[in-house]
């Protein structure tokens, strides 16, 4: 049965569906809390993330002396370090995703819009790059050129754009067939302005889903590097680096492992749920 077409726009429809998705809403709440805590939290504690205090090593989580989540083997406060690590992890997540977003959208939209041989060559390049074990190259980069946060951004962003390029290209190809694009082309609008004014805005939905699913991937990858000892350098820290330290001492001080592990897992969990909810909201055929 068909229903009468209702006047709601795609966007407000999606918003309504997202609002009825309790798991996604809860995730947004938890994630917001983690982000705010990472930004503001360190100021609430009398401690900082790098001062070593040999009079207070291996302290389990306690209210005494404001070591709410305990201390590590150098007497550094874990509450502050975990949130400080969160700042770095989240920042890498956002920035590297932005890098891959810009490259991916530009590349994918161009390939999809150009079509034909240009598209063929551009996508063949993507195919070839897909087959590269990039993770290993990033590891090599870290080893050779030192642990440089900027390098992490670039390296991770440069890998992740491939997915984005593919998705955007597919969408652009489909969009190109739509009458309103056809009309813009007939009226002689230049390709660049058609891409910028008509194609890119219509990609917002897919891009939003992609962003929420890429950020956790990036955070995960940075943590992976840090865990191998190839991420951010001491005394700066990230969740991955903290998990690494915690894993080394878990017999003696399990909180050093559990606290950053919970932060990392909770963040990834929330991002994944939001991404899922967003995708269902924009394309509700599976629900």
């Amino acid at each position: 049965m068909e229903q009468a077409a209702h006047g709601r726009s795609l966007f407000s429809d999606a918003l309504r569906r997202l609002r009825s998705n309790k798991a996604a809403l809860a995730s947004i709440g938890v994630l917001g809390f983690i982000v705010v805590a990472a930004v503001v939290g360190p100021w609430l504690s009398p401690h900082n993330y790098f001062t070593q205090d040999y009079g207070a090593i291996w302290i389990a989580p306690t209210l005494a002396d404001a070591h709410w989540l305990g201390t590590d083997g150098l007497g550094r406060d874990l509450f502050v370090r975990a949130l400080e690590g969160g700042r770095i992890s989240l920042m890498i997540g956002f920035v590297a995703t932005l890098v891959s977003l810009i490259i991916g959208v530009a590349y994918g939209a161009t390939a999809g819009y150009a079509g034909g041989r240009v598209d063929g060559v551009m996508m063949r390049i993507v195919d070839i790059l897909y087959a590269m074990p990039f993770l290993f190259f990033v590891i090599l980069l870290m080893v050779f050129f030192g642990r440089n946060i900027l390098l992490i951004f670039v390296a991770i962003g440069a890998i992740n754009w491939l997915d984005m390029a593919r998705i955007v290209r597919g969408q652009t190809l489909a969009l190109k067939q739509q009458p309103f694009i056809e009309a813009a082309r007939m009226s002689g609008a230049p390709a660049v302005s058609i891409i910028a004014r008509h194609i890119v805005p219509n990609l917002l939905g897919v891009v939003a889903v992609y962003i929420t699913l890429t950020i956790p991937q990036v955070i995960l990858f940075e943590s992976f590097l840090s865990f191998l000892g190839l991420g951010v350098a001491e005394p700066a820290t990230s969740w991955g680096a903290l998990i690494k330290d915690g894993a080394d001492e878990m017999g003696r001080a399990p909180w050093l492992l559990i606290v950053p592990a919970v932060f990392l897992a909770a963040t990834l969990f929330c991002f994944n749920f939001i991404g899922d909810g967003l995708r269902d909201a924009l394309d509700p055929k599976d629900r």
Binding site: P216, S223, G246, A247, A265, F269
Partner: peptide, 25 residues
Amino acid sequence: MTVAMLGISIPNFVLAPLMILLFAV
């Protein structure tokens, strides 16, 4: 699906030490 989402969200390098802690230590 909640369990699956947890599985995706807990990285292997977190799961491994946690398991060692639980099952070996």
